[in-house]
Write a protein that binds this DNA or RNA. Sequence first.
DNA 1: AACAAAAGAGAGCGCCGCTCTTGACAAGCT
DNA 2: AGCTTGTCAAGAGCGGCGCTCTCTTTTGTT
Lengths: 242, 242
Amino acid sequence: MLGIMTGTPRERARAQTMAEITRIGCQQLIEHGAAGLSLRAVARELGVVSSAVYRYVASRDDLLTLLLVDAYNELGDAVDNAVAEVQQRDGFDSGRAQFRALARAVRGWAVAEPARYALLFGSPVPDYHAPAEQTVGPGTRVIVTLMHIIESSYRTGDLTQPVSIPAASLPATLRRDFDRIRGQFEFEVPDAVIARGLLVWSALFGAVSFDVFDQYGTDTFTDRGILFDHHIDMLADSLGLS
Amino acid sequence: MLGIMTGTPRERARAQTMAEITRIGCQQLIEHGAAGLSLRAVARELGVVSSAVYRYVASRDDLLTLLLVDAYNELGDAVDNAVAEVQQRDGFDSGRAQFRALARAVRGWAVAEPARYALLFGSPVPDYHAPAEQTVGPGTRVIVTLMHIIESSYRTGDLTQPVSIPAASLPATLRRDFDRIRGQFEFEVPDAVIARGLLVWSALFGAVSFDVFDQYGTDTFTDRGILFDHHIDMLADSLGLS
DNA sequence: AACAAAAGAGAGCGCCGCTCTTGACAAGCT
DNA sequence: AGCTTGTCAAGAGCGGCGCTCTCTTTTGTT
């Protein structure tokens, strides 16, 4: 981060306007959802005529991509910070505490930013396809961090549960997929651990989505955070985290 | 179902037009998503001027509610049929097979109807609030069926896993919530079973959502159905289903 | 001071949800 | 049969949308 005193004045002005556009766009997203994100409204808020915004952003979809990457990174930062804090406090062999911190960071961010969470993990925006080269990196940060926690617990021998499952029970195609994943992300853990990790990953976001998207009725749980914490404990059990 | 030969000719014509509108609306939903559902397009497709549609449907949101209830019921029917088939084939004490059938029915319908699945379990549609009196009934069918399967397995003593967890470890607020749920749906099972059931419920839809909403990369798994089946097996294990 | 690049302004195209008014038509009652 | 009542389609119109095109103003550089 070199600050805003970089490059020519023109470039600085442009960077500042770009930042304003993403800020306003983020606000629009929060207030009216992804479908209601309107370049005209952004222009109005920016105090500029609608066509002027196209000098900065190629299209509505382009702005959406900016907001998508922004949101992925903010979630990733929140998760990484929460996990790092636990690592500093409780040491690196605190797998269960790290997992709890990760899960609660995800839910915390999702509850605080439901519209942006919906953009990342809800229904795909119709006729919008996220450009892979910009989104895969930020988009995989949470699962990478989760797998690192699990791998670390496995290395130190603190992971008990999934290893007991015989690897032979896995279909061959799945074993090949897991091999590829193991190579790509350098996870040195057996198949059963990868399988559990993926299940816990999707279960975690399932729980968060049910919460944020209001799938439980409005009045069935007095405090959804408590329900979530209990879910997290059960998931940690199923991972065998200590 | 009394067929279409009911009431005055007027009523019959109206019912037929209504059916056409929901059919076209469903098509629109599939093609352009919930946000792109357009009454004008429905009118065009129906061969009628846009304002005429308002004689049948009060608003865009009203049409959305119709489609929502329709989708909930179609999913509910698919699940109930799949479970009933297993019950007839394998008897009523086949908890694990029934659970597998339920899960695969959910995923099967979701994969076949991604847009309608997104309407039910994806991001909430902005500025749209589903009227509770029309949607809660159809919307709870899957979890009710799931809980019945679990309850039945618990009654016959085939459920081993969750009962071992001491109920005292649950927070008091959660125990009260579970009491209310137990009363409301007449589930005669201990707290730990309800907790596991809810976790499996959200995990199931988490797995389906990750699949349908393309959260795994496009090329990381050769056959997502196989991955899903394995997830389901692990979930059945965590329930203690035999 | 002159100039080219960058940025804003404005008009316009076709789309959208939704409202209001008008006129055609059919059902039911006297 | 005649008349009222209710149903329905049509059309114009409002403001908003994404996006494009052209024209003018600003701005940094030479």
